[in-house]
Design a protein around this nucleic acid. Sequence first.
RNA 1: CGCGGGGUGGAGCAGUUGGCAGCUCGUUGGGCUCAUAACCCAAAGGUCGGUAGUUCGAGUCUACCCCCCGCAA
Length: 328
Amino acid sequence: MLKIVFMGTPDIAKLALERIYESGNEILAVVTTPDTQKGRGMKFIPSPVKEYALEKGFKIYQPEKIRKNTEFIETIKDLNPDVICVVAYGKILPKLLLEIPKFGCINIHPSLLPKYRGPAPIQWAVLNGDKTTGVSIMYLDEGMDTGDIIIQEETKIEPKETTGNLWNRLSIMGANLIVTALEQIEAGTVQRRKQEGEVSIAPMLDKEISKINWEEKTGENICNLVRGLNPIMGAYSYLEGKKIKFWDVEYLQNEDVIKDFPELEEYLYKLKDVDPGTVLFSDSKKGLFIKAIDGIIKAIEIQPENSKRMNACDYLRGNPIEIGKIFE
RNA sequence: CGCGGGGUGGAGCAGUUGGCAGCUCGUUGGGCUCAUAACCCAAAGGUCGGUAGUUCGAGUCUACCCCCCGCAA
């Protein structure tokens, strides 16, 4: 049994905390970011980690800042933890804190380091259309995700998998893996190795990215954008001044569409002349088809302005879209 | 007391200056088809988010409440 201080904030961290606790370790304290005003009405919402900690009665700390917060650092020092586990805490730990636990500070990072160092590794793996990714358990050092690796596990990214799906899977993998790492630390069999391979950075997602660029992006790019931003932001486009978000789309070749809908064949000759983003076919039974530079995007799940997500076909029933209108 | 949008048959929407609650689909039954997600005919299905009020009369106007959604953080 190890004595652990856990630092983390979102749901991915909550799951890890849960597993660490359930596998028989002692949680000396939980550190999470202060409650923030979120959502409609700007109410103060505790982080998922805090909720779980409250439920289990763990000691909770929510310092505003930790760099130069000597009082907080002393508090942690007094707890005398064997290990500090950090999972998506949201703040960079100062050296003074890193040096406290005798077995070090370990971290879950949801990518195969050194690929995708930084805050948005899962999102970027999907956005870039990667076929595989993984989870790394590593020692923290003063850099950004540059510490030595303890264990890594790889997983495939399914062709239609969204960031949300992958996020859930990696959360579980990470939670299990950090427990394994803790067991190794306790048993004294833990190994560490330097990060090797090509380094890349996964920066925070810019808002700009969520607008679909029909002119320049290929059908595959658009598909990756849509699933990569689901469910965090959603990719959007404007139709007649109204913002429409795309939550699920399918990328089709012209031939695929003709095969399913022979009646579209008469439109085929027009395809070359039409601008990307143009609505090629719109019907509440067959769906909504939009031209991309190299094929056709079929909208499956969309979200109109001020409304909720819905099936594209449902939307078209009450809001018919004329063929020839252009998304931009 | 951050800003804004909205709750109308199972789904998505319309409903003008208050005056019989509609549209596109779906569902059920029937018909036509070699056949169909196509077409034709018919039917069922709503206390219009809730409560109180104004009125001869409220989906529509007023007040309060509940729920949902978007932006912003």
